[in-house]
């Protein structure tokens, strides 16, 4: 019976013990105050029960010290929790520098993961143990949310932009993956499994049955869509040179500067005029509606590989 009644989830990521420690501290705190209040209520209710029908309570006065105490003490406690919680949150929000990036497109009602090596999988995600993994996510329709309870992480997957989620799995095994943001009829079917594997097993898995890497698919698209007629490997093209673009700082026509991250590349493909590079004419057509989110991810991955 007890095996059918789990009370605490398995933890399988570097962040999980941090979340659990904070959670258990909070459970202790909540228990302390709940028992304190409930205990006082029961004690007072019995100790000061009405003994005669016309009995009157004794009015209490001069509670300023008490009032100050029970305002300031909770304030100090909650500020302490805030700082602790924010520290854990920062660790969740900031992926380490060298991560394995995996792409996901959420759509009603499935998860489509794409690995840089070219492996694609639906509602399943294979990752190596002991290596930070960053998931770059977007949605093709409504808002979804990628949630892996064993890793204690989740993040909304939004249409029209990229969001990220990172984790480092610490235990091999099979863990549930959910969509946590209500997304319509088969929301509860938008679930799957994360398989955490030993690195060599992961490499073997990556190599199996793949036609071409994500970047090579992107390269083919780059030619099919005739991107290469304007974006030349030198500075002579009508569009900006894309070599060494990823991660660099781009000067815009407005004088602003942006870092060319995945979101910027995506926006520049779909709505090129939104943030035009300085020195270039707004000649590029929009690709909104012409390419799917998966195509965009392939193009982005290809552009990321362009280095001199």
């Amino acid at each position: 019976m007890l095996s059918e009644l789990p009370l605490f989830p398995v933890g399988a990521s570097t962040i999980a013990p941090q979340v659990d420690a904070l959670y258990l501290f909070m459970v202790g705190l909540a228990l302390f105050f709940s028992v304190l209040i409930a205990g006082l209520i029961v004690y007072f209710a019995i100790r000061y029960r009405r003994r005669a029908p016309d009995e009157i309570g004794v009015a209490a006065t001069g509670g300023l010290i008490l009032e100050t105490a029970w305002s300031v003490i909770p304030l100090v406690i909650v500020l302490f929790i805030f700082v602790w919680g924010a520290a854990v949150f920062f660790a969740m929000a900031r992926p380490p520098a060298d991560t394995l990036t995996i792409y996901v497109v959420g759509k009603q009602w499935m998860w489509k993961f794409q690995h840089a090596a070219g492996q694609q999988e639906i509602n399943e995600l294979h990752v190596p143990v002991g290596r930070p993994v960053k998931i770059l996510m977007t949605s093709q329709d409504v808002i979804h949310d990628l949630f892996v309870p064993a890793f204690r992480v989740k993040a909304d997957v939004l249409p029209g932009r990229y969001t990220t989620l990172w984790f480092e799995a610490t235990r091999t095994g099979q863990y549930r993956l959910f969509c946590a943001e209500y997304c319509g009829t088969k929301h509860s079917g938008m679930t799957g499994w994360v398989y955490v594997m030993e690195p060599h097993e992961y490499q073997a898995w990556l190599a199996g049955g793949v036609t071409g890497s994500l970047a090579s698919s992107g390269e083919k698209l780059f030619q099919d869509l005739a991107c290469n007629t304007c974006h030349l490997p030198d500075t002579q093209g009508r569009g900006p040179m894309l070599h060494n673009l990823f991660g660099s700082t781009v000067l815009l026509a407005t004088g602003e500067k942006v870092v060319a991250d995945e979101s910027y590349l995506r926006e520049s493909i779909l709505t090129p005029r939104a943030r035009l590079t300085a020195g270039f004419e707004p000649l590029m057509p929009t690709f909104q509606g012409l390419v799917s989110e998966e195509d965009v991810l392939q193009l982005v991955e290809y552009i990321k590989t362009l280095k001199k």
């Binding site: 904070l22 909070m26 909540a30 105050f33 409930a38 929790i81 602790w84 919680g85 924010a86 854990v88």
Partner: peptide
């Protein structure tokens, strides 16, 4: 009693590091 539990569990949700796991 119940509002106390409701309020204290609200603190869990205000705590950034816990909310990520338990929201939704």
């Amino acid at each position: 009693g119940l509002f106390t539990i409701g309020g204290l569990t609200g603190l869990f949700l205000a705590t950034l590091g816990i909310d990520v796991h338990v929201t939704d």
